[in-house]
């Protein structure tokens, strides 16, 4: 399938999270626009404003003129502050209008995949940076160093937990030879979902390196699998692979690995040729790892000397303990 179609497919699957992010950006932009408008108008009578703040019930019973000395905040956005809020608003507005390009990136040939992803996240993260600037201006909280640049680029490393929970999803086009995912583990947090659209020859099981209990991982060419992967809460990486690659789905939530991991296709043939800087050995290791993860523990025990027929059946913990004891040659 051409990469364009797969990108569209991936964007469709990520539609709910994309829309949630854009909607949050739009809502924030609207809020900041309101602040600017009220400031720009300047002429809004503070008493009228206070009456509105009290709501219809409060303003019916409270004399705002008398309340004003205790309730109206003195001072407003002076020139510098107004400019910064204005810039934050422009950032939010631009992000809101950017559309799908906000959620797509391309890793150049021989490029660094992690760098491409971080670059894209940092650009989308300007939304968080803009919100932080506004918050800092409005609350008067001392501004952290570099906050001025937050509306230009706000790296994922500076996002807080709440921001990570609203992470924008990404669809990244990448050549198979550049599909080095091990370093992505460090940036998978919150709700970050990344779909890698892989072009050209690729290793058979590169994403096996990302399998950890809380991360959703999918290597597939099936849109149905991709949809299942996308519906799982939490962080995840999926790769739409070229033909010949392993197909598997790892979904957090299962009590054991066997409950989490579903392997649909496991190539028999081990890779023999390097792909760019990815050696055949590295590719084969990934495939062996996937094979090992799918092999029941009792089989491993059996292949390492076997248990006697008359031994009682052990539960999974018992089997693992038996295997460890055997490995230690106790």
């Amino acid at each position: 399938m051409p990469s364009e179609e797969r990108i569209i497919q991936a964007l469709e699957v990520l539609a709910p999270t994309r829309e949630a992010f854009l909607s949050a950006v739009a809502l924030s932009a609207e809020e900041v626009r309101g602040i600017l408008e009220r400031e720009a108008e300047g002429q809004e009578n503070p008493l009228e404003k206070l009456a509105r703040e009290l709501g219809p019930l409060g303003s019916a019973h409270i004399d705002v003129e008398r309340l004003a000395p205790f309730a109206v905040k003195k001072g407003s956005l002076d020139g510098g502050k107004w400019q910064r809020v204005r810039k934050a608003y422009e950032t939010l507005r631009d992000l809101k209008n950017e559309g799908d390009s906000l959620f797509t990136a391309r890793c150049p040939l021989d490029g660094y995949l992690r760098g491409t992803i971080l670059e894209a996240l940092g650009k989308a993260g300007r939304a968080f940076g803009a919100a932080r600037v506004v918050e800092a201006v409005l609350t008067g909280i001392p501004e952290p160093e570099g906050i001025e640049d937050a509306t230009v680029f706000f790296p994922q490393s500076r996002w807080n937990r709440a921001e990570k929970a609203h992470a924008p999803p990404l669809v990244v086009e990448v050549e198979g030879q550049d599909l080095k995912v091990a370093s992505l583990g460090e940036i998978l947090e919150g709700t970050l979902k990344i779909v890698l659209v892989v072009n050209g020859p690729a290793a058979p099981a590169p994403l096996v390196r990302l399998i950890t209990p809380g991360v959703a991982v999918a290597q597939t060419d099936d849109p149905a699998d991709l949809a299942i992967w996308a519906s799982v809460p939490g962080p995840g990486v999926a790769a739409l692979m070229p033909p010949g690659a392993a197909k598997f789905l790892h979904l957090p939530g299962g009590a054991t690995l066997s409950h989490r991991l579903q392997v649909k296709l496991l190539p028999d043939k081990e890779p023999r040729r390097a792909l760019g800087a990815i050696s055949a050995f590295q590719q084969a290791e990934e495939l062996r790892q996937l094979r090992a993860l799918t092999t029941p523990v009792e089989t491993l025990v059996s292949s390492n000397g076997g248990r006697k027929e008359e031994e009682p059946l052990l539960d999974e913990a018992g089997q693992l303990a038996a295997w460890l004891i055997q490995q230690a040659r106790l």
Binding site: K49, R52, E53, G55, K73, T139, G140, I141, P142
Partner: peptide
């Protein structure tokens, strides 16, 4: 709905030196 109903962000600007948490205005 009126945006002004929503609680404004609290004042988190640095506390001026010498100001105490209950520096009551003697009148109010």
């Amino acid at each position: 709905l009126d945006p002004s109903w929503v609680a404004p962000p609290p004042d988190l600007s640095p506390i001026p030196p010498g100001l105490r948490p209950y520096d009551w205005d003697p009148q109010t």
